[in-house]
Design a protein around this nucleic acid. Structure first.
Length: 426
RNA sequence: GGAGAGUUGGCAGAGUGGUUGAAUGCGACGGUCUUGAAAACCGUUAUACUGGGGAACCGGUAUCCGGGGUUCGAAUCCCUGACUCUCCGCCA
């Protein structure tokens, strides 16, 4: 959510930002409502001030046993007037809030302006020593074929149990998945100084609003209507909401959290080639990093966050590239975002495995997460950041395909072996 | 799922219709005293919106879990929702 005062004073900037993000502009309507609200507000507050004053006088009169009939009649009509004006203000506030919640975050000045993913900028790429992704082997199997052949992935039975997009891992495939999650968690804990969180997987509506999934993405979220709970689309939601409605100490910042969760996404409207196997699923596993930072440090923290995700891929020796997303591809809540894509030899293309974003105060304002500087009276919003570190499904595609041998077996990446207790899948 | 008890400022905890943004205690911060510290004493101690001002600041309004209602007036009465705790039932 953007600050209404900021919008008031910088409406042109905000409009430009909305345009760059390909979102709908309702700023003029917003400002009109805002103006009206403040007009009525000053009227009703004046009446309330009068009411409060007279109310004290009445208390005095009552004490002296004086007649109050006349004054009561007068105050009744004022009370009624206040009530109706209050209703008007409330009505306007609901409308204002609605538009604000549908207004996207503003891209940071360092974000390239662009229309779609075509305009994203590759910042760097990393290829393990001795590997050349240009040298395409002929007989590489894709992850679906590998999964089937080695009996480690079973998409058909997953579909039988739940529906398409719910992968079933079996045997060494299940172990490999678990190893990967544990490896990533341990790595961030030990090497990058994060604190571990194991969050709830179902969250309430307030939490979903806090991080910005609602109202805009409601169609893409699963919902347990009976209890009005949502299966988390990412651990970002429960972890960021840890500090909802809180005022943090300056000394506590930055806060680094890392947590695993299963992630649930309806992915409404996406079918076909793009969604085969692991490429698009309704349930996947992800280790998520979340940071709460002081505003002046948040962009340094973003760079570090991306590096933290990259370190995992370097340790796994998976080729990847880092993209700086352009304004048009930037998500609703983000001010700046880097995607990390890993190489898939079978698909012969890059697959998004991580997304690292700085939300600045956008989520913090929605979720009311603030901090107080030492010796300072005022509170400020923190900046929130998060990044996948990483999502296992896409990563699993790259691991299986990159580590496959000519005989169709798969060598387990060295760093995972202490977790898997085996070094080859065949 | 059933029955009951709760939810008040950073924390503890008063307050059952009228100068209550809210007693008191603790904590925190500032000061006095002290070579320094402790103790003691004095003072300060929420957030949001809104108007004025360049700003420090000043005024108004709201907030005692959320929402609705009764009333001239609600922390206090009524309805409703959420959460917490205790007991019973069920259960991995």
């Amino acid at each position: 959510m953007l600050d209404i005062k900021f919008i008031r004073q910088n409406s042109d900037l905000v409009k430009q930002a909305i345009k760059n993000k390909n979102e709908k502009d309702r700023i003029d309507e917003l400002l009109e409502l805002d103006k009206k609200r403040r007009e009525i507000l000053s009227k009703v507050e004046e009446l309330k001030a009068y009411q409060n004053r007279v109310s004290k006088e009445i208390a005095q009169l009552k004490k002296e046993n004086k007649d109050t009939t006349e004054i009561f009649a007068k105050m009744k009509s004022i009370s009624d007037e206040i009530k109706s004006l209050d209703d008007e203000v409330k009505d306007l506030e609901v409308k204002i809030d609605e538009i604000l919640r549908w207004t996207p975050n503003m891209p940071h000045s360092s974000v390239p302006v662009g229309k779609s993913s075509e305009d994203n900028v590759e910042v760097r790429r990393w290829i393990p020593e001795g590997m050349n992704i240009e040298n395409k082997k002929d007989n590489v199997l894709d992850h679906i074929e590998l999964g089937k052949k080695l009996s480690i992935l079973d998409f058909e039975r997953g579909a039988k149990i739940s529906g398409s997009g719910f992968p079933l891992y079996k045997g060494k495939g299940a172990t490999l998945e678990r190893a990967l999650i544990n490896f990533m968690l341990d790595y961030h804990l030990e090497k990058h100084g994060y604190s571990e969180i194991f969050p709830p997987f179902l969250v309430n509506r307030d939490s979903m609003r806090g991080t910005g999934q609602l109202p805009k993405m409601e169609e893409d979220m699963y919902c347990i209507t009976k209890d009005d709970l949502f299966p988390v689309p990412t651990a970002e939601v429960p972890i960021t909401n840890i500090h909802r409605e809180e005022i943090l100490n300056e000394d506590d910042l930055p806060l680094y959290y890392v947590g695993y969760s299963a992630c649930f996404r309806r992915e409404a409207g996406s079918y076909g080639k793009e969604s085969k196997g692991f490429l698009r699923v309704h349930q996947f596993n992800k280790v998520e990093m979340v940071k709460f930072s002081k505003p002046e440090n948040s962009y340094d923290e973003l760079e570090k966050l991306v590096n933290d995700a990259e370190d995992i891929l370097k340790a796994l020796k998976i080729p990847y590239r880092v993209l700086l997303l352009c304004t048009g591809d930037l998500s609703f809540s983000a001010a700046k975002c880097y995607d990390i894509e890993t190489w898939s030899p079978a698909e012969n293309r890059w697959l998004e495995a991580s997304s690292c974003s700085n939300f600045e105060a956008f989520q913090a304002r929605r979720a009311n997460i603030r901090f107080r500087r030492k010796g300072d009276k005022k509170v400020e919003y923190v900046h929130t950041l998060n990044g996948s570190g990483l999502a296992t499904s896409r990563l699993m595609v790259s691991i299986l395909e990159n580590y496959q041998q000519d005989d169709g077996s798969i060598v387990v990446p060295e760093v995972l072996r202490p977790y898997t207790k085996f070094d080859i899948i065949q």
